[in-house]
Design a protein around this nucleic acid. Structure first.
Length: 565
RNA sequence: UGGGGGAUCGUCCAGCGGUAGGACACCUGACUCUGGAUCAGGCGACCGGGGUUCGAAUCCCUGUCCCCCAGCCA
């Protein structure tokens, strides 16, 4: 299910795996893992990692584990665990019964720490956080050894045991690896392995008051699970020597860490910290606000898992950091939704049209195609009557040269219905705004074709006023105006680049009656407008749709060019 | 000024000593009962400077620029 939509790509990670299989490393086995920390929601950047890890496993006949990297109880929460599981599943991936938690390994990890102490490779350090920082040196100067570095094994064992027993204050002591305070790699200057945190863990409760650090936990979790290729992002490259050191020093099974460039998307942010701020400071309505690049946001926006997967696979995997145009993501939803979204007619900004020569009480059922890309989707009936709504922007009293929709004297086609010609307009006496258009229809053109072969330049979508059901539409635009909101100028904050018009709520829309049976999550193409997804906020008689993405609209460019000069 | 990485069309990714290719975007045109979709064509790049070689994006030297690392975060 996961790999059928796009041909398998090739990249440096797959090359490594193929080489490993040829040399018999790991006995030809491939076992990956996706290791989220449950401290926030998954976003499109995680989707790239999820696709990579699960695809790798499937392609090479291996498995991929889901593992929660839950070693910091002060930031993590069970709520996030559930959200992450739901999102990975929704994306179309299955981890079977291999749902693991680093916290499940706390006992084992503790034993490994004890072993390190016994090997003389770890010690309990009484330095305060500030002192540790001072002793660490700088990027260009070596650090100083802790005065506690040469405690005896017995003393270390005793102290570590008492750390675990809760005898010491938070922050008063740590367990540190004894490596090299003069290492040019700062990560190797006696890194902290365990810290005292008197916090309740969402899974282990109050059983522990010391918690292992990432560098100690991650490599050992990989080792315990028999991971072969531990794929992570570039910023962990400097940590790899430590990953290797822990495993080698302990003499345990040794997976290999491979780093690739994380995804950056234009016009949005993909850091949990920044996304959290957008939520907490109310710039968006929540983690699943359709403007958010979170999986839950994209889902509510109307994105399909297939589109997200196709996007992630098309990105490729490399080590050069890049900024992917969000237009590429939009391309993949359009491509997917074009294939599968049923068409429907909705008038977003209505203009009343009266067809003067159409019988007052007549209602005709027009046959409309549900999806021209998919004949099996069939047809439906759409009621037509004397008073209709068309899109306000489909009429112009004084049209510019490239405008070939409705205008006084002009004839256009109403989709699946008749040709109509504009005969008159009614204006608001106060504002001069056109409030109603009068037309005549040609009964010979029923179904949309003229027997005399005459052509019209434009086809308009419409709804019958008597049959229309009211709807609200939420038009979303890019969250940030700036291509790269992470590139913050002096004295500014990334929130300064927020797009003030990223959400426009349009009320008073009219939808064709078939939409009455839609349920939240249903996706449609509103003909000539874009792709929309019914929001859970919808109530019977008060439908709400989120615009996933607009249709490609060359005319918008023409208009812009005309207005621009 | 330490260490670790990275530089190829506007963007993203290929190219692994032998004609720099694809996708998105953009521009033409065809077709169309969605100014959608589809189809055809086009534009467009090897960070700079040296070298090795018949031949270099690829190998060597040198320079430049960008990213990451000094959490008891991950």
């Amino acid at each position: 299910m996961a790999t059928t939509d796009t041909p398998a790509p090739t990249d440096f990670i797959r090359e490594i795996i193929i080489r490993d299989q040829q040399t018999g490393k790991y006995g030809g086995r491939v076992h990956t893992r996706f290791p989220p920390e449950p401290n926030g929601y998954l976003h499109i950047g995680h989707a790239k990692a999820i696709c990579l890890n699960f695809d790798l496993a499937e392609e090479f006949g291996g498995l991929c584990n889901l593992r929660f990297d839950d070693t910091n109880p002060t930031k993590e929460d069970a709520e996030y665990v559930e959200a992450i599981k739901r999102d990975v599943r929704w994306l179309g991936f299955d981890w079977g019964d291999r749902e693991y938690y680093a916290s499940d390994y706390f006992d084992q990890l503790y034993e490994y720490a004890v072993q390190l102490i016994k090997q003389g490779k770890a010690y309990v350090c009484d330095l305060s956080p500030e002192e540790i920082r001072l002793y660490r040196g700088t990027l260009t100067e070596p650090g100083k050894e802790s005065p506690y570095r040469n405690r005896s094994v017995e003393e270390n064992l005793d102290l570590f045991q008492r750390m675990r027993a809760g005898e010491f204050e938070e922050g008063s002591r740590t367990l540190r690896a004894k490596i090299d305070m003069a290492s040019p790699n700062v990560v190797m200057r006696d890194p902290v392995l365990y810290r005292i945190l008197k916090a309740r863990h969402h899974r282990t409760g109050d059983r522990w008051c010391i918690y292992p650090m990432y560098d100690f936990t991650h490599c050992l979790s990989d080792s315990i699970e028999g991971i072969t290729h531990s794929v992570c992002t570039l910023e962990f490259e400097t940590n790899r020597p430590l990953y290797d050191w822990v495993l080698d020093t302990l003499g345990v099974y040794h997976p290999q860490q491979i780093e690739f460039a994380r995804l950056n998307l234009s016009h949005t942010v993909l850091s949990k910290r920044k996304l959290l701020r957008l939520v907490q400071e109310g710039y968006v309505s929540g983690w699943d606000d359709p403007r958010m690049p979170t999986i839950s946001g994209l889902r509510r926006r109307g994105y399909t898992p297939e589109a997200i997967r196709a996007f992630c696979r098309r990105l490729g995997v490399s080590k050069s950091e890049s900024l992917v145009d969000i237009g590429l993501l939009e391309h993949y939803v359009r491509e997917d939704l074009n294939r599968r979204a049923p068409r429907v007619m909705v008038v977003q900004r209505p203009l009343r049209v009266v067809i003067d020569n159409y019988p007052e009480d007549l209602v005709e059922e027009m046959e409309a195609i549900n999806n021209p890309e998919d004949p099996s989707a069939g047809t439906r009936k759409v009621p037509f009557s004397r008073v209709l709504y068309i899109e306000r922007e489909d009429f112009m009293e004084n049209p510019p040269s490239h405008f070939y929709r409705l205008a006084p004297g002009r004839e256009v086609r109403l989709r699946y219905a008749y040709f109509i010609r504009c005969t008159d307009v009614v204006k608001d006496p106060q504002t001069g705004e056109v409030v109603q258009v009068h037309c005549t229809y040609d009964p010979q053109t029923r179904g949309g074709d003229a027997p005399d072969g005459r052509k019209v330049k434009s086809t308009l979508h419409w709804v019958s006023a008597r049959h229309a059901i009211p709807a609200t539409v939420r038009l979303y635009d890019r969250l940030f105006l700036k291509e790269n909101p992470n590139d913050v100028e002096e004295g500014k904050d990334f929130t300064d680049y927020l797009n003030p018009n990223s959400l426009e709520v349009v009320t008073g829309c009219w939808a064709e009656p078939s939409l009455a049976s839609a349920v939240p999550g249903d996706r449609f193409q509103f003909e000539r407008l874009g792709y929309y997804c019914m929001d859970p906020d919808s109530r019977p008689g008060a439908l709400v749709f989120n615009r996933t993405v607009g249709l490609r609209d060359p005319y918008a460019k023409v208009l812009k060019a005309v207005l621009g000069q």
